[in-house]
Design a protein around this nucleic acid. Structure first.
Lengths: 111, 111
DNA sequence: GGTCACTATTCAGTGGTACTATGTACTAGT
DNA sequence: ACTAGTACATAGTACCACTGAATAGTGACC
């Protein structure tokens, strides 16, 4: 993956995953697959699992073990209120950044 | 500063600074001041200088020492062709991310 | 003439995040 | 048995922004 993408994902990947969970609960393997479908082809499984461990440790999600027909049991993650609040903050921060960067990108300014 | 902002700046702050330099050459202290003017009120001076050392080491900028009337000599940074190319890649990566995140934010999808 | 304020740069140490690479474990098809 | 697909876990690495402090020059004020 591009080095720039790697760095830019720091801070945003977490928001992306939480946004996916806000849409509907999901488990790690599924999240990884969905990310790939959506164009993030180079995100490693290990990255997602480590991230999920982190958001669980931070109390942003609820976890439920669900048996699978084909493989080990799944850990299904659900966004909880604290996670939703955290996600709202994420979008605020993201909006702030996009506003500033759009100005820099297009608004060849006359300071 | 918000922890989310701190993490989100990783990868983007470098692009922001390079974009500022693309507009016109500048020195560290000036860049810090300009960032503050543009709303990044909490970016520490040390952060900017460390970033400038890095982009210089990576050969993205040219450096010229210019005496100052009031203070130590300034190190004026100018974006070079390699830096411009790197900045173009940055905008591509940024556009990719914004597209995906906009879909996640608004487009409550029908996968 | 000593302190304060502003300008200007540098650097050591810290914490957080994504990546690499690998390992574990269950199921099904051959 | 062997392979492939599903599913989760983790140690080690690299990179980046932040904290906090140090260094150094100039001008102004008392």
């Amino acid at each position: 993956m591009g080095k720039q993408m790697t760095e830019m994902l720091k801070g945003t990947l977490e928001g992306i995953v939480l946004a996916i969970l806000a849409d509907e609960p999901a488990y790690g393997y599924e999240i990884t697959a969905r990310l790939r479908d959506q164009g993030f082809t180079d995100i490693a499984e290990g990255t997602v699992y480590a991230l999920l461990v982190r958001v669980e440790r931070n109390g942003l999600v609820e976890v439920e073990r669900v048996p699978s027909e084909k493989g080990p049991p799944r850990k299904v993650y659900t966004l909880n209120p604290k996670g939703q609040e955290y996600l709202d903050e994420f979008w605020q921060t993201w909006d702030f950044l996009t506003e500033k960067l759009n100005k820099l990108h297009h608004g060849r300014n006359a300071s």
